[in-house]
Measured scan of single mutants.
Amino acid sequence: MEQATVKWFNAEKGFGFIERENGDDVFVHFSAIQGDGFKSLDEGQAVTFDVEEGQRGPQAANVQKA
């Protein structure tokens, strides 16, 4: 698992990007966020996640709020 920071997340559209420590951004979809209830992330929030290869490149999976 990697630890990184949420760059931005649009709760209405259900997706955003996580900024990795190496500077690369990773796409995150609300369905990858672990937990119950409304799944959203806040800008600047610390998260841990795995990286999977998606249809359009790397994307976050198993996202957990740190």
Rank of each mutant, 00 (worst) to 15 (best):
Gln59Asp: 02
Phe30Thr: 06
Phe9Asn: 04
Leu41Tyr: 02
Glu2His: 14
Phe15Tyr: 15
Gly57Ala: 03
Asn62Pro: 01
Leu41His: 01
Asn10Gln: 05
Val28Asp: 05
Glu53Arg: 08
Gly57Ser: 06
Gly57His: 05
Gly37Gln: 06
Ala11Glu: 09
Ala61Thr: 13
Lys7His: 09
Asp36Ala: 11
Gln45Ala: 09
Gly35Phe: 08
Asn10Ile: 03
Gly54Asn: 06
Phe15Trp: 15
Gln59Thr: 07
Val26Glu: 00
Val26Ser: 01
Val26Pro: 02
Ala66Phe: 10
Asp25Phe: 13
Glu52Asp: 07
Glu2Leu: 14
Glu53Thr: 11
Gly44Leu: 02
Gln45Lys: 03
Ala11Leu: 09
Met1Phe: 12
Glu2Gly: 10
Phe17Leu: 04
Gln3Ile: 14
Phe30Arg: 09
Glu52Met: 12
Asn62Phe: 06
Leu41Arg: 00
Glu21Ser: 13
Gly44Val: 02
Asp36Cys: 15
Ser31Gln: 06
Glu19His: 14
Lys39Glu: 06
Glu12Arg: 12
Arg56His: 12
Gln3Val: 14
Lys13Met: 12
Asp50Val: 15
Val6Lys: 03
Ser40Pro: 01
Phe30His: 09
Thr5Asp: 05
Glu21Ile: 12
Glu19Ser: 14
Lys39Phe: 06
Glu52Gln: 11
Phe17Met: 08
Gln34Gly: 07
Pro58Leu: 13
Phe9Pro: 06
Ala32Leu: 00
Asp24Ala: 13
Val63Cys: 03
Glu53Asn: 12
Lys7Arg: 10
Lys13Gln: 08
Phe9Arg: 00
Gly57Val: 04
Phe9Gly: 06
Ile18Val: 05
Ile18Gln: 02
Arg20Lys: 08
Gly16Gln: 03
Arg20Val: 10
Phe49His: 03
Gly14Ile: 03
Val26Ile: 13
Lys7Trp: 00
Val51Glu: 06
Gly16Ser: 00
Phe30Ile: 09
Arg56Gln: 09
Gly23Cys: 08
Glu43Trp: 13
Glu52Leu: 13
Gln3Glu: 10
Ala11Asn: 11
Lys39Tyr: 06
Ala66Pro: 07
Asp36Tyr: 10
Val51Gln: 05
Thr5Leu: 11
Asn10Phe: 05
Gly14Pro: 01
Gly57Trp: 05
Ala32Ser: 09
Gly16Glu: 01
Arg56Asp: 07
Val63Asn: 01
Thr5Lys: 14
Phe27Met: 01
Gly23Trp: 04
Gly54His: 07
Gly37Arg: 03
Ser40Met: 11
Gln59Phe: 10
Gly23Ser: 07
Ala4Val: 03
Glu21Cys: 14
Val47Met: 02
Asn62His: 10
Gly54Gln: 05
Ala11Lys: 15
Pro58Lys: 11
Gln34Asn: 11
Gln59Ala: 07
Phe17Glu: 01
Glu2Gln: 14
Val28Trp: 05
Phe38Gln: 07
Lys13Pro: 03
Asn22Leu: 09
Ala11Thr: 13
Val6Phe: 00
Gln64Met: 10
Glu19Thr: 15
Asp25Met: 15
Asp42Ser: 15
Asn62Tyr: 04
Gly54Glu: 03
Leu41Ala: 02
Phe30Asp: 05
Ala4Lys: 04
Asn62Lys: 07
Ala11Pro: 13
Ser31Trp: 06
Trp8Asn: 04
Lys65Asn: 08
Thr48Lys: 09
Asp36Val: 11
Val47Lys: 03
Ile18Trp: 01
Gly44Lys: 06
Phe15Glu: 03
Ala61Ile: 13
Gln55Leu: 14
Thr5Ser: 08
Ala46His: 14
Gly23Glu: 08
Thr5Gln: 08
Trp8Ala: 00
Glu43Ile: 14
Asp25Lys: 10
Leu41Trp: 03
Ser40Asp: 07
Gly14Leu: 01
Ala4Asp: 01
Gln3Arg: 15
Asn62Ser: 06
Leu41Asn: 01
Glu2Trp: 13
Phe30Met: 08
Gly16Arg: 00
Glu19Gln: 15
Glu19Pro: 00
Gln55Trp: 13
Phe38Pro: 10
Lys13Tyr: 11
Asn22Lys: 11
Lys13His: 09
Asn22Trp: 10
Glu19Asn: 10
Glu19Ile: 15
Asp50Phe: 15
Ala11Gly: 08
Gly14Lys: 00
Gln64His: 12
Gly54Cys: 09
Glu2Thr: 11
Glu43Ser: 15
Glu43Leu: 12
Asp25Gly: 06
Ser31Asn: 07
Val63Leu: 05
Ala61Pro: 01
Lys65Glu: 06
Asn10Cys: 12
Ala60Pro: 02
Ser31Tyr: 04
Gly44His: 08
Gln3Trp: 14
Ala66Ser: 12
Asn22Ser: 11
Asp24His: 11
Gln55Cys: 15
Gln64Arg: 14
Met1Asp: 08
Phe49Thr: 02
Phe9His: 03
Ile18Ser: 00
Gly37Lys: 05
Val28Arg: 00
Gln3Thr: 14
Val63Thr: 02
Phe30Val: 09
Gly23Pro: 02
Ala4Gln: 04
Gln55Arg: 15
Arg20Ala: 05
Gly57Thr: 03
Glu43Asn: 13
Ser40Trp: 15
Met1Val: 12
Gly54Ala: 07
His29Tyr: 04
Arg56Trp: 15
Val28Glu: 03
Gly35Pro: 01
Trp8Tyr: 06
Ala11His: 13
Gly37Leu: 06
Glu52Phe: 13
Gln64Asp: 05
Ala32Glu: 06
Val28Phe: 14
Val47Asn: 02
Gly57Pro: 04
Met1Arg: 15
Ala46Gly: 09
Ile33Ser: 02
Met1Trp: 11
Phe27Gln: 01
Thr5Cys: 14
Ile33Pro: 03
Ala46Lys: 14
Gln45Asp: 14
Val51Ala: 05
Asp50Tyr: 15
Gln3Asp: 06
Lys13Ile: 10
Leu41Lys: 00
Ile18Pro: 02
Ala32Asn: 07
Thr5Ala: 06
Gly57Leu: 04
Asn62Glu: 03
Asp50Ser: 14
Ile33Phe: 05
Val6His: 01
Val26Leu: 15
Ser40Tyr: 14
Gln64Thr: 11
Val63Arg: 00
His29Leu: 04
Asn10His: 07
Ala66Met: 15
Glu2Asn: 12
Val51Cys: 08
Asp50Met: 14
Ala32Trp: 02
Gln45Tyr: 05
Glu21Ala: 14
Glu53Ile: 15
Asp24Cys: 12
Lys65Ala: 11
Thr5Asn: 10
Gln64Cys: 08
Ala60Met: 02
Met1Lys: 15
Ile33Thr: 02
Lys7Thr: 01
Thr48Val: 11
His29Phe: 08
Asn22Val: 10
Asn62Val: 04
Val26Tyr: 04
Phe9Val: 04
Ala46Thr: 13
Pro58Gly: 04
Ala66Lys: 12
Gly54Arg: 08
Gln34Asp: 08
Ala61Gln: 10
Gln59Gly: 04
Phe38Thr: 07
Lys65Phe: 10
Thr48Leu: 12
Glu21Trp: 11
Lys39Asp: 04
Gln34Pro: 04
Glu52Ile: 15
Lys13Asp: 04
Gln64Asn: 11
Ala11Trp: 10
Arg20Thr: 08
Lys39Cys: 10
Asp24Ser: 14
Glu12Asp: 11
Lys7Met: 00
Ser40Thr: 14
Val26His: 00
Phe27Tyr: 06
Asp36Leu: 11
Lys39His: 06
Ala60Lys: 00
